[in-house]
Design a binder for these strands. Structure first.
Lengths: 206, 206
DNA sequence: ACTAAATCAAGAAAAAAATCACGATTTATA
DNA sequence: TATAAATCGTGATTTTTTTCTTGATTTAGT
């Protein structure tokens, strides 16, 4: 599916998706670009351009079929293809993410958690087991997992990342406030909570 | 400080900031734009353009002073001005955010949590108390809090948002996968975890 | 059936962001 | 001290993204 959709667009697509879910729950079958645009505070032609990428034709004077839009957004963003992942770091955030069942409906399947604290080993979180970090390389190989969600303390981040890379992890979803040093074969996505908050907070609050 | 910094820039600024923290810990006093650029996989003139916004002059052949950069990033992004906030919804994510002490160093001060589950009331989380949601309007007024971090289940999101707005909350940092309907006086920031993940995951994994 | 209003589609224009290119400056070194 | 290499600063260029505009189409109402 990888049509190389720009980040901004895929962000909007997930917002559109939420609106589609809402409309389906409300039993509404069609939706127009001005409706969506107003809701998100963007231009309606922007919405139509985005839908164009989905190859989803609308009907003049009527709008788009909610169900079709939802499906093609899911197809385009790859909700359907399940991707397995490990959570590395079983602190508060790691546990919260493990318990966050919505991941599943977006095609992300958390198989297990890891930590180096002996106290945490073998605890079950939302039907997922916490393993000692030393078990990771073996499990990566056996289960063919490529994605790690990194939620360790920042002091440990780089070191753990290197361990993950040695263990053949290819994608790191990085929740730590550290810019990881990785070889070009490994992809990192920085989940920059504070970045977005600051953007939100600074613009108007003074 | 609100110089209306574009979202992309403020995102990069937080990444630069993390690198500065790392350099300071390593005892390195200067840093050059190509160094940073390579680390982030972006163009070095981009880095210089961003620093230009900070009014932070570099020195040819030497680079920038790490300490100065860190300070001006903090000033520009408003780390220094503390902003009070409530967490609304004391589920896994709400609790994880309450325990996430890094918020403080970015100028976000969580005062309390709220929930509607009587079982959770009065529990202390990281020195912050969980209150029944009905106590919120009064506390908003007494403490002058304007920011709410919304971490309730999606089914409740719109309804709770409306309650927050009635209670005079002006900024909602929305962690639910719902596009909230709010009046123009209220600002919403959608923390779109899945959006960023999908972007990350779809581009290369197939 | 005709008219008016809403909506889509798509190309043009504008705005914003990223990259390129090059002159100027500084430092290290021969 | 002269030369070379690294780096900054910035204007020009390119690319990307958003907004504007116009024409076609569909539906509802007269």
């Amino acid at each position: 599916m990888s049509k190389n959709i720009p980040e901004k667009v895929s962000n909007r697509l997930t917002l559109y998706h939420s609106i589609m879910v809402e409309y389906i729950e409300a039993g509404i079958e069609t939706i127009s670009s001005p409706q969506i645009a107003q809701r998100l505070g963007i231009d309606d032609s922007q919405v139509r351009k985005d839908f164009k990428l989905l190859n989803n034709a609308g009907k003049c004077r009527v709008g788009y079929m909610v169900k079709d839009l939802k499906d093609s957004i899911e197809k385009t963003l790859g909700f359907s293809k399940t991707k397995d992942a490990f959570i590395v770091g079983s602190g508060h955030l790691g546990l919260a993410l493990a318990k966050y069942d919505s991941f599943n409906s977006y095609g992300l399947n958390i198989l297990a958690l890891f930590d180096n604290d002996p106290q945490k080993i073998d605890i079950q979180v939302n039907n997922k087991q916490i393993f000692h970090i030393s078990k990771l390389p073996n499990l990566v190989q056996r289960l063919g997992v490529e994605i790690a969600i990194l939620t360790v303390p920042r002091q440990a981040a780089q070191q753990v990342a290197e361990f993950l890379i040695e263990s053949n992890i290819k994608y790191i979803w990085n929740f730590t406030p550290v810019v990881l040093k990785v070889p070009p074969t490994v992809k990192v996505w920085n989940e920059n909570l504070m970045g977005s908050f600051l953007q939100f907070a600074c613009k108007d609050i003074e």
